[in-house]
């Protein structure tokens, strides 16, 4: 009894210790999150104001905002979504619909997962070589292509995964009714998998809106508001990067304000994506 009791006690202590440490680990993660967010909030909140959205980035010693960078990022992100999403959805559909057996689908799936985690600076170098250098100038288009390359694998993967979750019976019913494959995919599969695919897109947008490395050698940056996608285009990450390391307090303030806006935007997207996902999981 006493030996067994001691053993039981020891097991209980180990159990308590392990679960306590698990709680501690979770707290560590949460503290890191709060610490980072608080840093951004404290440094950025003071610089928030309507001027951020009405004026372009200033030269040192003047007042200004982030209008050109915000619009530039918005336009390039939009173009990247237009480029990356259709290709990503089609490729993802191919993976989901051609079965797990074909070597080519396996190869693409494998390659796509590599692309998903590939260092984005390498993507920037690639786009520099294939677009910037041949065309003779940095451009918003090059930036958008680099962003699309980062977005693409996210869309491919989520499309593949969510389409494979659609019940087989649904497909077979459609095909048995004589619907051609493309109608089945377009009118049965996509509506059924819509929430999951939207989630993927939102996560992809969240990912590309914070990327600095692929834009440095592609979109470059622009001091002025510009809507010409064939020219260098302002964007948030590069502006934040340049201003954060400048000697001028006004620029550093703008960098923190930009960091706050960017973080809020990205986190809202991630939360939105989770919200969309929930009904499917529940």
């Amino acid at each position: 009894m006493s030996a067994g009791g001691a053993r039981m006690l020891r097991r209980q202590v180990v159990n308590g210790l392990a679960l306590g440490l698990a709680t501690l680990a979770t707290l560590t993660g949460l503290i890191a999150l709060v610490w980072i967010l608080a840093t951004i909030l404290i440094n950025g909140a003071g610089a928030l104001g309507p001027h951020l959205f009405t004026r372009a980035t200033p030269p040192p010693g003047s007042e200004g905002g982030l209008l050109n960078a915000l619009l530039g990022s918005l336009m390039m992100t939009g173009l990247a979504v237009l480029l990356g999403t259709p290709i990503g959805i089609l490729a993802g559909t191919h993976l989901a619909e051609s079965g797990g057996r074909r070597w080519i689908a396996e190869a693409v799936r494998f390659v796509n997962d590599i692309l998903l985690s590939a260092p984005s600076i390498v993507t920037g170098l690639f786009v520099y070589e294939i677009i910037v250098q041949p065309s003779g100038h940095f451009s918003g288009i090059a930036g958008a292509v680099a962003m699309a390359m980062v977005l693409l694998p996210v869309v491919v993967r989520t499309t593949d995964e969510t389409l494979r979750l659609v019940p087989v019976s649904l497909r077979e019913a459609a095909l048995a009714l004589g619907a051609p494959l493309w109608r089945m995919v377009l009118f049965v599969l996509y509506p059924a998998a819509r929430a999951g695919m939207m989630t993927g897109l939102l996560l992809g947008i969240a990912r590309i809106s914070g990327e600095t490395a692929p834009l440095l050698f592609t979109a470059l940056n622009n001091q002025y508001l510009s809507f010409d996608l064939t020219r260098p285009m302002a964007n948030m990450p590069v502006v934040i990067f340049q201003f954060a390391l400048s000697p001028y307090p006004a620029w550093q303030q703008l960098a923190w304000a930009g960091a706050l806006l960017m973080t809020l935007f990205v986190l809202l997207l991630s939360l939105g994506a989770r919200f969309m996902l929930r009904p499917r999981r529940g």
């Binding site: 030269p59 001091q223 340049q242």
Partner: peptide
């Protein structure tokens, strides 16, 4: 494009 050193001044001159 280029030197980080002249960036603030060229931004100002340009403006």
């Amino acid at each position: 494009a280029g030197s980080t050193f002249v960036y603030p001044l060229l931004a100002k001159w340009s403006d």
